[in-house]
Simulated scan of single mutants.
Amino acid sequence: MKYCAFLRGVNVKGTNMKMADVCQVFKEAGMQDVSSVLASGNIVFSSDKKAEELKKILEKAMSDHFSYEAFLFIKSHEETGIFWSSIPFEKKDDMHIYAFVGNPGVENILMAEFEAASKTEDEKAEITGGIFYWQVPKGNTLDSSFGKVLGKKSLKDQLTSRNINTFEKILKKMN
């Protein structure tokens, strides 16, 4: 089965790694057809194992190799497609749209945080099919009240986010 591993915290805040090295770790852990998409920690690969087992194997392999506490989320080809096909917002040149990959139920935590945060004009959030989507004006992602919430230590093992354009690139690589 084809999968994508979405790594959290790669190439930010001092956790720097080359995607070629990450791909090599995946290969050494027994994954096939391994390739990366962008430098933000998206690894496409094939395996006969189930996602839950792959998460444990790959987090340990990454943690051991790079000497950091690795967090990643595994989605099948079909599940990855849903992130792209379920976008609730119209794409606009002046907006970023993010989708959040995470543990079951994290979308409700994110919505509660979003509702409590101050917002810019046109900043929106919606849960569609159990996926939390966030629309924010370009240039405001890190400065927004909700953007600051995403850096909370209590959420670090719960989720990671990607711009929806990244999902399109991942799906092209998976096909």
Rank of each mutant, 00 (worst) to 15 (best):
L38Q: 02
G129A: 05
I127M: 05
A61H: 04
S46C: 11
A39Y: 00
S40P: 06
S161E: 06
N42L: 05
I97Q: 12
E52Q: 10
V106D: 07
L171F: 08
T120S: 14
G147V: 06
G105K: 10
T128M: 08
G129V: 02
S86I: 06
S40I: 00
K91W: 13
A51P: 14
T80D: 06
D93E: 15
G130P: 00
H65S: 11
T166E: 07
I127S: 07
M95H: 12
K138M: 12
H77M: 13
N103K: 10
F71E: 06
S145H: 07
A117I: 02
Q135H: 10
P137N: 10
S85F: 04
E53P: 11
K148S: 10
L150M: 09
E126S: 11
F114C: 08
G147K: 10
K148H: 06
I43P: 08
T120G: 15
G129I: 01
E69I: 02
K60A: 13
K169C: 05
K119Y: 06
T120F: 11
L110W: 04
G102P: 02
K92A: 15
K148Q: 14
V44G: 01
T80H: 11
M95K: 12
K169L: 09
I170P: 01
E168Q: 15
S46G: 15
A112H: 14
G147W: 03
H96S: 15
A125F: 05
F89V: 05
K50S: 13
N42F: 03
I82Q: 11
F167L: 10
K92W: 10
S161D: 05
E69W: 01
F146M: 03
E53K: 11
E126D: 10
S67F: 00
I109Q: 14
D94T: 13
Y98Q: 15
K92T: 13
L54V: 05
I87M: 07
A112D: 15
K119P: 06
S86A: 14
E53I: 07
G130A: 03
E69F: 02
K119D: 12
E113I: 08
N103C: 07
L159A: 09
A99P: 05
S118D: 14
S47C: 13
L155W: 02
G130D: 02
F45M: 08
G41M: 02
L171S: 07
K119L: 07
F146I: 01
S144T: 11
F114G: 01
A70F: 00
E107F: 03
K55A: 13
L159Y: 02
E123Q: 12
F146R: 03
K55H: 11
D122F: 03
E90F: 12
K124R: 14
T141D: 12
S145L: 07
I170E: 00
F73H: 04
F73R: 03
E123G: 13
F100G: 03
I43Q: 00
